[in-house]
């Protein structure tokens, strides 16, 4: 009995609509996150992640509605992140039907938020999302935490930060390589290994997946789950293909 490596498609949602993405022939509306969630569920996704990139906080109601509708129709775990600033935000998402909530910038701004959320809701539903890059400053840490979608460096050592948020109560780390993100050149394996060596919670690898051969090395580097967005949206890879590629390398999958 070994827990399976999870394959997680991520949907970028803006104002209740899926950002980019291909028009799958078997979908009425590929822009509807609920429809996309159902498709990924049917294809064997192990979890779903919604990244809410809605700029205006006035449109957040739409996000709660999407989460509610998804939870009513999809019976696999759902993580929602993006713009989460407070314990109240976490509470509203959990009550809408999210199983886990991702926190990023707000945790960097005020690390105690992690402890407060873990204490109130349990560490199993708090995912700390880390947008990290290889540090351009040779005197800085090897990997650096960034904010604002990778545009701003913080000087914070990403590996030390991962260890700190786990200490504060994060139940999982979503590790996104900002250098690899969007390149489709493969995951940053060294970054995964470095974080894996420092934390004892599950690590989700994110950023850089472009072909089937990219997934098994991420697991080899220590990832417990592999996340991808664009390769799934654009129909370049299907969930089942990724699982077959992992299985062929001896990785347990569902």
């Amino acid at each position: 009995m070994t827990v399976a490596v999870r394959v997680i498609p991520c949907l970028d949602v803006d104002g209740g609509r899926v950002v980019k993405g291909v028009n799958f022939t078997d979908l009425r509306d590929a822009g509807d996150p609920v429809e996309m969630a159902r498709l990924y569920d049917a294809e064997g996704a192990d979890e779903l992640t919604f990244l809410d990139i809605t700029a205006s906080s006035g449109d957040r109601e739409t996000t709660y509605d999407i989460v509610r509708r998804t939870a009513e129709q999809v019976f696999i775990p759902l993580t929602v992140g993006g713009g989460v600033r407070s314990t109240d935000d976490v509470n509203r998402l959990l009550r809408a039907g999210a199983d886990k909530v991702g926190i990023n910038t707000a945790a960097v701004a005020r690390p105690e938020l992690v402890r407060e959320c873990a204490h109130r809701f349990g560490n199993q539903c708090i995912v700390i999302s880390i947008d990290a890059r290889r540090c351009p400053d040779p005197t800085g840490p090897r990997f650096e935490v960034t904010t604002h979608g990778g545009r701003r460096g913080t000087g914070i050592d990403a590996v030390a930060w991962a260890a700190q948020v786990v200490e504060l109560g994060s139940g999982e780390i979503l590790l996104n390589s900002m250098d690899a993100d969007g390149t489709r050149d493969g995951y940053d394996l060294e970054m995964i290994s470095a974080v894996r060596a420092e934390v004892d919670v599950p690590v989700i690898a994110s950023g850089g997946a472009g072909e089937l051969g990219h997934f098994p090395p991420a697991v080899g580097a220590g990832a417990d789950a592999v996340l991808a967005a664009s390769v799934f949206h654009f129909g370049q890879l299907r969930i089942g293909e990724v699982k077959s590629a992992l299985r062929a390398e001896g990785v347990p999958v569902r």
């Binding site: 009995m1 070994t2 399976a4 560490n123 199993q124 999982e172 417990d224 789950a225």
Partner: peptide
């Protein structure tokens, strides 16, 4: 070594289990 135990795993039900009746042994 890694907690929480998070994700899909198999289980070993006893013979004659009611809850797991009709589910294959490798069900996660």
């Amino acid at each position: 070594p890694i907690l929480p135990h998070m994700g899909w795993n198999t289980v070993r039900p006893p013979a004659g289990s009611v809850l797991f009746a009709g589910l294959p042994a490798d069900t996660r």
